[in-house]
């Protein structure tokens, strides 16, 4: 076990059962039990993941669709508990995985900022203190009291990103969330993320944009069908991925 690692994954495995839909009633369950087969179709999304990330690392995660990148981030954030293996994460985590959790589009942006903050575990006082900054960063001041169902996708993402990054975390998990913003806002987001990196925040960056990975990341891993195919300096891993993927 790495001593100074902020994130330490050992032998992590994640299984999903794909046929679960058909087994959610008691009748089905009883029938299957009677037939003596309660076997699910097991799908291994991640296997044999050993990974240590140190303070200040900026780790890029690349791989084809369905290779397990989002699953890996969800395990680090604690949304998913791995089927096997151990996960140790030290410090506060800001997950930019699925933004806007808990948004109720019937409510106004003002109400949603507080709701989303609450979902992320912030207190009322913290949210009051940061409200101004959140509104300022989102650039949505003019639309604060409009129900969010009248927002465009990008506008919702602006609010969500602003809330998610209002507290400087120890660990930032970014999963392709910048795709819906306009270039102006994406630039602002990247600046904020870069600022956090400069202050020593550890970052997990999932991206299909290899130029971005090369630019921002110090290290990278390449996931292939749930396993780590390559690990090392971002440049080398990206080059291998381009050549082999």
């Amino acid at each position: 076990m790495e001593r100074d690692a902020l994130i330490d994954l050992r032998g992590v495995e994640m299984h999903f059962n794909m046929s679960r839909e058909r087994l959610d009633s008691l009748k089905e369950y009883a029938l299957r039990l009677a037939k003596g087969r309660l076997l699910y179709e097991d799908f291994t999304a991640l296997a044999g993941i050993d990974l240590a990330v140190r303070r200040g690392d900026v780790l890029g995660v690349v791989g084809l669709n369905g290779s397990g990148k989002s699953t890996l981030l969800k395990i680090v954030s604690g949304i998913l508990r791995p089927t096997r293996g151990t996960v140790r994460v030290e410090g506060t985590v800001a997950p930019l995985i699925e933004l806007g959790a808990g948004f109720d589009l019937e409510l106004t942006a003002r109400e949603n900022i507080f709701l989303n903050g609450a979902v992320l575990g912030h207190s009322k006082r913290e949210m009051r203190a940061r409200f101004e900054e959140i509104v300022e960063f989102s650039g949505m001041r003019g639309f604060l009291d409009v129900p969010m169902k009248n927002y465009s996708t990008g506008m919702v993402a602006r609010i969500a990103f602003s809330v998610a990054t209002c507290v400087r975390p120890d660990i930032l998990l970014v999963d392709e969330i910048l795709s819906v913003g306009d270039h102006q806002f994406v630039k602002k987001c990247e600046e904020r993320i870069a600022g956090m990196m400069a202050e020593g925040t550890t970052v997990f960056l999932v991206s299909h944009d290899l130029a971005e990975v090369r630019r921002l990341c110090t290290r990278a891993i390449w996931l292939e069908r749930g396993r780590i195919r390559a690990e090392g300096p971002a440049d080398a891993v990206c080059a291998a991925y381009e050549a082999g993927g």
């Binding site: 949304i79 985590v93 997950p95 995985i97 959790a101 979902v119």
Partner: peptide, 9 residues
């Protein structure tokens, strides 16, 4: 469900 899938609470 939507909350459980998106954040850790």
């Amino acid at each position: 469900a939507s909350l459980l899938r998106k954040v850790r609470v």
